[in-house]
Design a protein around this nucleic acid. Structure first.
Lengths: 111, 111
DNA sequence: TCCATATTTCCATTATTCTGGAAATATGGA
DNA sequence: TCCATATTTCCAGAATAATGGAAATATGGA
């Protein structure tokens, strides 16, 4: 994970429809949802949805998998975890205890 | 923390200079850095820096505090923690153990 | 093969964001 | 008060992103 990578991820989530979309997929869990089902739940035209899904996939926060005529999209939890680690790297110059206890749980978990 | 709020935060970090800026402040810790010192370290013109700092402050991920002729900027760790909680809300339909163990540390920490 | 349906690509329009020079505005020291 | 320095505001040009209709491309079933 580098700066450019992280920017791409943030940009992919910095849009109402895409963030809603991503949260829907986080809640759906690893099996994901078919594109059509997402379009219905989000009330988006298919071309608009396709555009946004592509953004999320390119950023690496969403994965796709084909199954028959449907394409299932699901959140990529590994990418999100990597992002959080990157964000908190060297937090507070290595003395993180005072500023961000919850974030620190991630640091501890990384090793 | 609602959707619009989170979008604003992501947008504030979805830009090379601003993400670098934010990470610099995360590493600097709670005391923060003066605007001029940031400009120097980032190699940005003052007007450009000021624009980006304002974006970060408006999004709530950075705080400012005046001290003499200097204005110190620091990361707002509470906002970041709230964002992480929002992102993982209802993760995997309430069965998060399988997909995102590190994220779950945050959920546990929230109560 | 032909058809119905799922999804994506193409494209032009519109909207938003980034950039940095120049001028304006604080602030504290002499 | 006057000055030097810190920071912000203003502005307009350049760059990037969002939108959705229409057409194209899968895919599997009959």
């Amino acid at each position: 994970m580098d700066n450019a990578n992280a920017v791409k991820i943030f940009a992919s989530l910095a849009q109402e429809s895409r963030l809603g979309l991503f949260r829907l997929l986080v809640q759906a869990g690893p099996q994901g949802l078919a594109a059509g089902s997402i379009a219905e739940q989000m009330g988006l035209p298919s071309s608009t949805l396709s555009f946004h899904l592509k953004e999320l996939v390119h950023a690496g926060v969403v994965q796709s998998r084909q199954s028959g005529r449907f394409i299932y999209y699901s959140a990529d939890f590994a990418t999100m975890n990597a992002l959080l680690g990157f964000l908190t790297e060297n937090c507070c110059g290595g003395q993180p205890q005072d500023c961000c206890p919850p974030l620190m749980q991630i640091q501890e978990n990384k090793s």
